[in-house]
């Protein structure tokens, strides 16, 4: 089923939603502030006849008038990284501070992990984990090109992630950018139109819950866990967060973000969720001219 049909009841303007889902995504990059300022990137791209538009809500989010930003000096020099606008949201919501120990539980190909390190100004530790060996190669390559020196790469099943290799027990902040049905990426991957079976959605939700539960366990008291997916499916979003709120010592907070969004939904197809999931954030293609995204900020109990 086309995502625009499955989720029509969640949006105010189903026609605009469907039309946006069928348009290609704008080409968006993130400025790697470890290497360059937005002004540096804009100057050099514009000198190469690439038009650049800075997005209002973050100076580091640039829309560029080329489908191949990789063939430019700012890319090969690691001044920027091709990263969709909404996929820049969760690292901003996690709000890493210099010195923090951070885990990115499903990190490949590394856009968000490298963004986290840049937001710490390279000061602290980012453990970028992924279970998939093939995807780890792209994670390492991106880390190298972007000059991330406080990154440790691990390969574990996040559901049973162990701090074994390191000399500490818990992280200050954990990002769970969970594997999902990916319906929010329809503008990039039109194959998503075919949808996923109910069986695989159930399987994904179990995996997502396992990852999020382990993330909460791995986080220090008063620490932050951000859960994100690129799907509109409440089964993979609010339902997962709702179950964690019910069983783990944590709560959900509203994130402060200037990018337009909608609250989490509290009911879907006969299920009711913890009313606090309304504090989560939903991003829709027709409202932000982006992909779709879901993001929830959890605060671990003190």
């Amino acid at each position: 089923m086309h995502p625009a049909d499955r989720y029509a009841e969640l949006v105010e303007d189903p026609t605009a939603f469907r039309n946006a889902c069928d348009r290609p995504l704008p080409s968006v990059v993130r400025v790697n502030t470890l290497r360059a300022t937005p002004r540096d990137v804009i100057n050099v791209l514009e000198a190469s006849d690439v038009r650049v538009t800075q997005r209002d809500w973050s100076p580091n989010v640039l829309e560029v008038s080329t489908d191949e930003p990789g063939n430019s000096w700012p890319y090969v020099l690691g001044w920027m990284h091709g990263q969709e606008e909404v996929s820049q949201v969760p690292a901003i919501v996690l709000d890493p501070q210099p010195g923090d120990r951070i885990l990115d539980m499903a990190a490949a190909p590394g856009g968000k992990a490298t963004q986290l390190a840049a937001r710490q100004d390279g000061d602290g530790l980012v453990v970028a984990n992924d279970v998939n060996l093939g995807r780890l190669a792209s994670l390492r390559t991106n880390g190298e090109r972007l000059g991330i020196t406080n990154l440790a790469v691990t390969r574990q099943d996040g559901r049973v992630f162990s701090v074994g290799p390191f000399d500490f027990e818990q992280f200050d902040r954990v990002l769970v950018d969970a594997p999902c049905s990916g319906e929010g990426t329809i503008r990039k991957n039109p194959d998503v139109q075919e949808g996923v079976s109910e069986g695989s959605r159930e399987h994904l939700a179990t995996l997502q819950e396992g990852l999020l539960r382990r993330a909460v366990e791995l986080t220090v008291p008063s620490g932050v866990v951000v859960y994100g997916t690129c799907t509109f499916a409440p089964e993979e979003n609010e339902a997962v967060v709702s179950r964690i709120l019910a069983t783990e010592d944590c709560t959900i907070e509203r994130a402060d973000l200037a990018l337009e969004h909608r609250p989490g939904v509290t009911r879907w197809q006969g299920s009711e969720f913890d009313p606090r999931v309304e504090r989560a954030q939903r991003f829709y293609p027709h409202e932000t001219d982006s992909g779709g995204f879901f993001c929830a900020k959890l605060r671990v109990g003190a």
């Binding site: 000061d123 602290g124 994670l139 390492r140 880390g143 440790a152 790469v153 691990t154 290799p165 000399d167």
Partner: peptide, 19 residues
């Protein structure tokens, strides 16, 4: 490799800082 920070040695990881 160069790694900003410290870690126990030896350590078994897939990457540690930058080549």
């Amino acid at each position: 490799w160069a790694f900003r920070g410290t870690a126990p040695t030896p350590i078994a990881v897939e990457g540690l800082g930058l080549t």
